[in-house]
Amino acid sequence: MHNETILRIDDVVKKFGEVAALDHCSFNIEQGSITGLIGPNGAGKTTLFNLITGVLQPDSGHLFFKGEEITGKKPYEIARRGVGRTYQIIRIFPKMTLLENLVVVGKGRERRVMERAMELLQLVKLSEKKDDYASDLSFGQQKLLSLAQVLMFDAELILLDEPAAGINPTLQNELMALIHRLNEGGKTFIIVEHDMGVIMNHCQNAIALNYGQKIAEGSCSLIQQDERLLEHYFGR
């Protein structure tokens, strides 16, 4: 059904000094999928997010979004093409109200932007707090606001850096349910997560990185049986 590739990573290398954070990494992400990105600390997951969003530039290799090369493009240009991300350490705008946090990234007419912002606040169940400062929210609520920001500019590919970490199970379930709903609506997700349960329950595919190299890729059930991965995650 959805076999079209939305994101193509082609032989990407990124070094910090002598250390290769990403070492000839290649893979494709299909439109409408939810892909888990797994691997131990320092495997290159966050670096990969930074490369996709244009915060960092690769030393070599190419990145394509919907068939168009995005290598070397500025972060805002990539965002405007439809790539959104949330951060592991939440990075909303603390001294701005919730509504302002959304309106600021909206495109188009004032009125339309306000309506859309209110819709999204309702979607993440924060509409009652619309005039509060974002710094007044709990950590979990900030994560929801951060997701709403990404939806605000109609990102099609959404990168989530540890969305479930550090929030209570109820909110966690709500968040994952929301992700599934958005996915059914056509959004594509890449999720970095340390909690393997979250990956197994919510992702269709997974890509495993270690020392900047892709060491496994496939459906979650297949990945689970991969021995090298078992070593990293399940074995001890």
């Binding site: 965002a79 951060y87 001294k95 600021v104």
Partner: peptide, 15 residues
């Protein structure tokens, strides 16, 4: 103001 609060985040949000 978004630039003041977090410039890099603002840029990845399309500003």
């Amino acid at each position: 103001m978004a630039i003041r609060e977090d410039e890099q985040a603002a840029e990845t949000l399309g500003i």
